[in-house]
């Protein structure tokens, strides 16, 4: 039976900074994303080629969804962060189910266990199957949404925390960020385990069905993370939107 550790192993360390396999994969995903983004936008043309067209489709798709939720102005303002999360999570989920990623492919020795047997660790592992990676992204969303809320609402935003319920609002804000991190982590880790178990139980044909399912899960989870990021930031800036709407209506 395959065994998947919750904690990802440290594969090497630079100047005391431990690099685990998931962090290494996250850097790899970032590098791939930067390279293909640069390649897609290097020679932009009015009539896009195939590659540019693919990126325009992603940007316009997310922008269209964001406009439905947040309105035109805020959608354009929040798009960079939301789209970056979407592309990063999508690419790392889809790269995570490639053959070389995950259990039993490329190993590195990282010490010995108590019986002097060498401990082996995978170099590549799906980046979001580590709570540290998803937790870091959720922390960015949390801090940024609270900052936006305070900047747009000021004291009125802080008042929401104190009145009517002192603790309820704080718990609500923290727990939704925690849920954001746990949801992505749990889904991707469960997918990894599902694939590993199906690969040992029925090694023929059946795993390919689940691979297809994981492709679907990968894009749905990326979309959900991006949409929830957007809706947290939208909720935080409601004051601003009301003021803008009021100014608009009094102006006319």
């Amino acid at each position: 039976m395959p065994h998947i550790e919750l904690a990802s192993p440290v594969i090497f360390s630079i100047a005391g900074l431990s690099i685990t396999s998931t962090i290494f994969t996250a850097y790899l995903v970032s590098a791939v994303l930067i390279v293909i983004s640069l390649a897609a936008t290097r020679r932009m043309e009015l009539v896009p080629g195939r590659f540019q067209n693919l990126f325009e489709m992603a940007v316009e798709g997310i922008l269209g969804i964001a406009t439905q939720t947040a309105g035109d102005r805020r959608a354009r303002r929040f798009l960079p962060l939301v789209l970056t999360f979407f592309l990063f999570i999508l690419l790392s989920n889809w790269m995570g189910i490639l053959p070389l990623f995950g259990d039993g492919e490329i190993f590195i020795r990282h010490g010995v266990d108590e019986h002097a047997e060498p401990l082996l660790a995978n170099i590549f592992r799906s980046a979001n199957s580590d709570l540290n990676v998803t937790g870091a992204m959720a922390l960015i969303v949390f801090v940024w949404a609270e900052y936006l809320g305070f900047r747009s609402g000021g004291l009125a935003y802080l008042k929401e925390f104190i009145w009517p319920g002192l603790l309820i609002e704080i718990i609500g804000h923290v727990s939704r960020a925690v849920a954001l991190a746990l949801r992505l982590f749990g889904n991707i880790l469960a997918g990894e385990i599902l694939l590993a178990i199906m690969g040992t139980l029925v090694p023929v044909l059946i795993p390919s069905v689940f691979l297809g399912f994981e492709v679907f899960v990968g894009i749905v989870q990326a979309l959900i993370f991006a949409l929830l990021t957007l809706s947290f930031m939208t909720l935080a800036t409601e004051h601003e939107a009301h003021q803008a709407a009021a100014a608009e209506s009094s102006h006319h």
Binding site: L6, I65, Q68, A179, L182, R183, F185, G186, N187, L189, A190, V220, L223, I224, L227, L228, S231
Partner: peptide, 24 residues
């Protein structure tokens, strides 16, 4: 479709908590 997906994600999160407890 989109609000449904978000709602489903919220419901699914509860199962994910149970899964993490099971792992632990």
């Amino acid at each position: 479709f989109l609000p449904m997906i978000i709602g489903v994600a919220f419901a699914e999160a509860v199962a994910i908590y149970a899964l993490i407890i099971a792992f632990v």
